[in-house]
Structures are given as structure tokens and as C-alpha cells.
């Protein structure tokens, strides 16, 4: 068999799917994540709709903190995009610095969240208080775990991309971070604003 046959046959594969394996894996991972958060959001919306009285509990969430966190997450997503661009251009130290900024955004987000939790718990709004608070802690807690997981991954990638290793992973962790961001954009109006 000559080389042109092999080249032609390899071409047949690329026409099926030209997505890098890592990105494909991330998309499938997020598909399963969507079914977790999607399921929760659907349940919450249905129940919330049936129970208008939850509004009296929802007013006690700290809207300003939620809004601040929304801004923080959106900004950190921006630096993740810039990090991806820098990695594409081969500017790995800059990519690492920008990932560091995103990481910092995660830290701020978690600090604000911790402040909220402690404030709310001191005021007696504990998970077992009512269904609204159960859902509030479940959904924001699950989201915060995703933030922490993303930060761990980002830290590892930051260290390796500085040395120019696996720069494509900057994009993958960025996709993940956008997802975490989008989940928050659903949670913020549902849990904070709708009261």
C-alpha cells in the first residue's frame, strides 16, 4: 500500500470528527454535569412555582453578595478566555498569569460565599430550616464544590503551562470554568433575585 492511500484513509477519519480528544472529553463531561444541575434546576423551578410562599424565605439571601459574585465569576471567565488566547499564541508565562487571575477570582468567590454562609447560619437560616434553604445550600454548595474542583485543576495546569507543557489544557479548563459560570448565572436569579 502506498503512502497516498494511507493519507486518504486517515482523511476519512478526520471528516467524521475533527475535535481534539481532550476537548471532546470535556464536552461529554459537561454533558453529564448538565444533567446533574439541569435536573436540580428543573426540580427547583417546578417546586418554587408551586410554592409562592418560599418568597418570604428567599428575601433573606444577600443579593449584594450574590451580585458581587456574579461579577467576580464573569470577570474570571474573561481572564480564562485571555489565557486560552495567550496559550494559543505560545505565550505560556502570560497564560499562566492569566489563569492565576482566574484562580484568584475563584478565591474571592469562595470568600464571599463563606461570608454569606456564616452570616446566614448565624441568622438561623440553616439547611434544615425550610425547603428553600435546603435547596439553597444544596445548589450553591454543589456549585462551590465545582468551583473548588476547577481551581485545583487550574492550579496544576498553571504550573505546567508555565513550563510550556500541555498548553491545550488551558482551553479545556477554560471551558469547564465557563460552565461553572453559566450554572451560577442560573442560580443567581433563581435563588437570590426571585423573591
Amino acid at each position: 500500500m502506498d503512502d497516498s492511500t494511507v493519507a486518504k484513509l486517515e482523511g476519512a477519519n478526520l471528516e467524521d470528527l475533527g475535535i481534539p480528544t481532550g476537548r471532546l472529553a470535556m464536552w461529554w463531561f459537561l454533558a453529564s454535569e448538565i444533567s446533574i444541575f439541569g435536573g436540580l434546576v428543573c426540580i427547583f423551578v417546578l417546586l418554587r412555582w408551586r410554592h409562592p410562599e418560599w418568597a418570604s424565605e428567599a428575601v433573606h439571601t444577600i443579593n449584594a453578595a450574590g451580585a458581587l459574585n456574579t461579577v467576580v465569576l464573569l470577570t474570571s471567565s474573561l481572564s480564562a478566555v485571555l489565557a486560552h488566547q495567550a496559550a494559543e499564541d505560545g505565550r505560556y508565562r502570560k497564560a499562566a498569569r492569566l489563569l492565576g487571575a482566574t484562580f484568584g477570582g475563584g478565591v474571592i468567590f469562595l470568600c464571599v460565599k463563606a461570608y454569606e454562609y456564616s452570616h446566614e447560619i448565624h441568622a438561623g437560616f440553616v439547611p434544615a430550616r425550610s425547603m428553600f434553604w435546603s435547596f439553597y445550600y444544596l445548589m450553591t454548595g454543589l456549585h462551590a464544590l465545582h468551583v473548588i474542583g476547577g481551581m485545583v485543576a487550574m492550579f496544576v495546569i498553571m504550573l505546567s503551562v508555565r513550563k510550556g507543557l500541555n498548553p491545550q489544557r488551558v482551553e479545556y479548563v477554560g471551558i469547564y470554568w465557563h460552565f461553572v459560570d453559566i450554572v451560577w448565572i442560573f442560580l443567581f436569579p433563581l435563588l437570590y433575585l426571585a423573591s
Binding site: W28, A31, S32, E33, I34, S35, I36, F37, G38, G39, L40, I43, P127, A128, S130, M131, S134, Y137, L138, L142
Partner: peptide, 29 residues
């Protein structure tokens, strides 16, 4: 992968019901 998500959420809720005292599946709450 597309079907297991809601049950993962359900398992977490059940565990919280047992350990933290939430009432996701408890009609009294």
C-alpha cells in the same frame, strides 16, 4: 452519562436528609 445526573443529585439530597436534617423527601418538612 446523560441519565445518571438527576440520580446523583437525588443521592446527595437523600444523604443530606439523613445526615443534615433537610427534608427534600420528607412530607413533614
Amino acid at each position: 452519562m446523560l441519565s445518571v445526573g438527576p440520580l446523583i443529585a437525588g443521592a446527595v439530597m437523600l444523604l443530606l436528609d439523613r445526615l443534615v436534617g433537610t427534608g427534600f423527601f420528607d412530607p413533614a418538612a
